[in-house]
Nucleic acid binder design. Structure first.
Length: 282
DNA sequence: AACTGTCCCTGCAAGC
DNA sequence: TGCTTGCAGGGACAGT
């Protein structure tokens, strides 16, 4: 499922393949994908526009357009962005198609594909960001885009109650971590999902900050994680490889890579499947 | 204010 | 074999 590393990989793909291209045609096949502002705003806002940048904040991709408006793409659970030559057979659930004006004799299309339709494509005036995308202002620190270290993490966690894993999943605390990377980070940090913030020594916070940066950076380098359902692929259709480095996620019942002594256990925390080593994570 | 549980949706795998 | 059921989960929202 797309979390920060997968979204960053898609962002880089958009940056290299779509930024600088003028949009000559727009198709919206399923209105649910554009539910926030509606079909007309998306078509009218994108037609004739050129993407001038592709940024990311948490799991949100934000592109500036030369018209002054912005394009936001959120993949949620099953969203994919693909670029293919015009005329290529589109996969099922291709809900938004942007035709990119001819270049070097080739016409390409950017597809937004999303079987489960949780994802979104939004076009909006940045002057109205607070009304259209109020959640953007509430996003916490992005460990890759923003300056991120133990002090920043300590500040983000200050005053927070409850278990550590739900806090890592809370986009208002740290933006971009989802279920897979939360489990991977906690295993590397030797911390169990139910630890509370006030039980963490300064040394543990330092380690946690280091592991957040490390795991996300390494996962970006690996092109993200593609699970068995192979939902996630990058803009060229390639799978990621970080799943080969997963230490706990999806390894229930298998031996812990760190201690080799006990099996990875799985419980449900905050409605999410959670894998951990009962020996290495305290 | 900040926490937890429910819902949205489809594809896939397990079980009868 | 072919159906039903459960599971996957990001984030908004309602309820506490």
């Amino acid at each position: 499922m797309p979390e920060l590393p997968e979204v960053e990989t898609v962002r880089r793909g958009i940056e290299s393949r779509v930024v600088g291209r003028r949009i000559s045609h727009v198709e919206v096949g399923r209105e649910r994908s554009v539910r926030r502002v509606g079909k007309e705003a998306v078509i009218h806002g994108l037609l004739g526009a050129t993407l001038v940048s592709a940024r990311r904040r948490g799991k949100y991709i934000l592109c500036d357009l030369d018209t002054g408006e912005q394009l936001m793409i959120h993949l949620r659970m099953s969203g994919r962005v693909l670029v293919e030559k015009a005329g290529t057979k589109r996969p099922p659930h291709t809900h938004v198609v942007l035709t990119l004006a001819e270049r070097d004799g080739v016409i390409e299309e950017m597809w937004f594909v999303d079987p489960r339709t949780f994802g979104e494509v939004v076009v909006f005036d940045p002057a109205h960001t607070a009304e259209v995308l109020p959640e953007l202002a509430r996003l916490g620190v992005d460990p890759i885009v923003d300056e991120f270290n133990a002090d920043v993490l300590a500040r983000a966690l200050r005053g927070r109650r409850g278990a550590l894993k739900p806090l890592l999943l809370n986009q208002h605390v740290v933006a971009g971590i989802g279920n897979i990377y939360a489990d991977e980070i906690l295993h590397l940090a030797g911390l169990r999902w139910n630890r509370t913030v006030d039980s963490l020594s300064r040394k543990k916070i330092n380690e946690l900050a280091t592991h957040i940066s490390e795991v996300l950076t390494q996962a970006i380098e690996a092109g993200g994680s593609t699970l068995q359902d192979t939902q996630y692929v990058d803009i060229e259709g390639n799978v990621g490889s970080f799943q080969e480095n997963h230490r706990v996620y999806g390894r229930e019942g298998q031996g812990c890579i760190t201690c080799g002594k006990v099996s990875i256990r799985r419980v449900i925390v905050a409605g999410r499947s959670t894998s951990y080593c009962p020996r290495c994570q305290k």
